[in-house]
Every structure is written in structure tokens, then in C-alpha cells.
Design a protein around this nucleic acid. Sequence first.
DNA 1: AGGCTATTGGAATGGTCATTCCAGAACAAG
DNA 2: CTTGTTCTGGAATGACCATTCCAATAGCCT
Lengths: 204, 204
Amino acid sequence: MARAKSPSRHALVDSALKLFWKRGYHRVSMGDLVRETGVGRGSLYSDFAGKEALFHACLDRYQETVVTPAFGGVEAKGAGLAEVGQYLDKLLARNAAHPGPDVGCLVLNTLAQVTPEETETLARLKAHGRRLQKGLYQALWQENQKHQKLDEAEIEALARFTLISLQGLWAQSRGSRDIEALRQYCKTLLELLANRLGTDEVTT
Amino acid sequence: MARAKSPSRHALVDSALKLFWKRGYHRVSMGDLVRETGVGRGSLYSDFAGKEALFHACLDRYQETVVTPAFGGVEAKGAGLAEVGQYLDKLLARNAAHPGPDVGCLVLNTLAQVTPEETETLARLKAHGRRLQKGLYQALWQENQKHQKLDEAEIEALARFTLISLQGLWAQSRGSRDIEALRQYCKTLLELLANRLGTDEVTT
DNA sequence: AGGCTATTGGAATGGTCATTCCAGAACAAG
DNA sequence: CTTGTTCTGGAATGACCATTCCAATAGCCT
């Protein structure tokens, strides 16, 4: 029936994801996507309803191939502050690997450009936030078991704080090449969290 | 010589600022600006070299009319953690005053959309970051005088952390209507800072 | 009023973009 | 090879945009 698709669907989405991530949704044209993916213009429109649908596929793939590998450790059963530290290390390592100004987080970049009308896109961004929040809550809860200094509401607040604060890390990484500043930020964040939870050293 | 300008130059820039702030640089067209400001198309181009120059004027005016009123207290001589708390209160109050999803911070919104080529714009954004960083450093330094728990390098790191973390607050405020979450974030941030500085209560 | 200058807003220009269309190429099966 | 199907990529379409131009207009001074 169908002829073998030249680049597999995953490869296609990966190429598109790379472009969207680097330049942001609005700065990528369909022409760019045709050039980058190697897939014909007509085929793009028969595989996806349009530019926005393709972007949604990219957001989903981003969760699988970027968020899960980095954040999965925090979501794992029994994870604590140490796993949060490892997550931060992964973010820093990715940042250091890039040559130019970093690309930051696809979700956060999109958030700053999206309009209230693009409800489908917004829904995906919110789901991402809930995912991180939940993972952080579990890890902090686990860590709190050691000394039981906080009640559940306080852990909830601390997880929320961490999530919002982390968004600053991504925003910052877009504009600055100063990796040392980012490293220092991560170190301070971990110290503050450890301090509040009563854990005095964090072993990564 | 010159005829009185219909809306004063400040009023013109204020109108443009409002639009840019709400919708972002790329989502505002010159047609929008003509409609909103009430100034003729030709006049806009004789007063400013183009859209980007007008935007730069808006960024400058943003510093004067938005940043200074909110952040000036932190920059004042002798300011400490209490003034940082007042600054956060002002941010929250502005957020609560808006009906729809908040506009966040013009500088941060722009940061997510700007390209590395727009050097003039980038320079202004970086200057903004330096301004906040400096103010925060001074306030934290002042607060640290009370108990002298930290050395200067640690204060520097704490100021950097606070700055990056605050960027998350603005990012978050764009996507969510959950003011309570923002309030909780501010509360937690202040507590963490106070804790690290040895100040146990923060009176605003 | 009459002349001068600054301002105006509509039209024209040249560009980019998403999306649609379609004629032909590439492929598989008979 | 022939037929039927899928894929391709260039061209066409219609929309939007920044910028430039310019004839008409509105205010100011003498």
C-alpha cells in the first residue's frame, strides 16, 4: 500500500523538533521545515493538518526524548533530593555541550510566545508543568521522611517554589553564556532545599 | 517651529508600550501602533527610525515607569529584606489587578523572542538584568550586616540565585491565573532568604 | 486672509508566510 | 510493460507586514 516513508515519522518529527527548539515556533517557516526534514511540502500537509499540528507532535516527542531521560530519575519511586541534584546536573551538562547561547526549554520558550487563543498548545504546556510539579513533590516528600521537619502543605509549597524557580533557570540560560552563574544557581537551590528539609549534605 | 504633537511623545510611547507588553514585539504590527497611538503612519516613521527604534524607546520607558516604581525601594540606600518583600508585594498586586492572564515582565517576554542578531535589544535586556542583580545584592548585603552569617561571595551567589528565581515568577505569571500559587512562591522565597541570612521574621 | 511648514493617512512597494493545487515521478502489483 | 497508488516539489493563492511616498490637510505666524 503505502510506499516506505523516506525518513521515518520519528526522524521527521525529530528534525522539526530541533528547529522549533532552537528558533521558536514563530520563527520557523514551512519552507524551513521542508528543507530540514527532507520531506516534500505536499507530504507534510498530508501527514499533519498544518504547522500547529506538527508542532504539537513535536511537543509530545519532546516529552519522550528530552524530558523523560532527564527528569525520569526524579519521578522514580524512592527518589529524593539526590535525584533532583542529578537532574540539575543533566541540565547543566546539556547547556555546556551547546556552543552558542543555549536553547533553554522548549516548553518555556513556547510559553512566552503563545497567545491565550492557542488552547491546544497551552494545554500541553500546562500538562508539562503538572508533570514536573508532581515529580518534585514526590522527591521532596521522600526526602522529608528522613527528618520530618515539614508537613504536607509545606512540601507542596516547596515543590511549587522549586518549579517556578526552575523556570527562571531556563529563561536565564537562553540569554546568557555564563555557565558558572547557572552552576552556582543550581548549587544554591539545592542548598536551600536541603537546609529546609534538614538534610545537610546532598550527595549526587 | 514644531507644531504641538497631538499626543505628547510620552503618551505615544506609553500606548506603544502597553501593546508591546501585552502581545509581545512580533505580534504587534505598525498598523496596530497607528490605531492605538492615534499618531499618523508617516509621523511614526519621522519620529522613530522604525519599529525596532520605537520598541527601544518603549524598553527605556518601561524602566522609568514600571521598574523604578516597583524596584526603587530595593535600590534605596539602607534597604534590606523588608524592601525585597515589598517589591514582591507590588508584583503580586499588579498581577491581581489584571483580569486575564497576566502580561508578565516585558523584558522577560522579549528575551524569549529575541534573536542573537538583535544586539541593540539584547543589550537593553542585559542592562536590566544587571540593574536587578545589583539592587538585590545591595539589599542582601545590608540584611547580612545584622548577623554576618555570609561572606561577600555567598551574598553574590544568593543575589544571583534570587534574580534567576524571580525570572521564573514572571514566566509563570504569563501562563497561569493562579495568584495563590504566586503568592506562595513569594512567601517561600522570602523565608528561604531570611533563613539563610539568619533573620527569622520579615516585616513588610 | 495668505503663505509656510509639519503632520496626516491612504496608496504603493516589495517581501514573507501558510496553505492549496497539481502534473509528473517513483514505486508496487499484475 | 501497464495500471493504480502514493509521494514530490514547484507554482499559485490570499493574507499580512514594514517601510516609503505623496497629495491633501491643519495649524501657526505675519
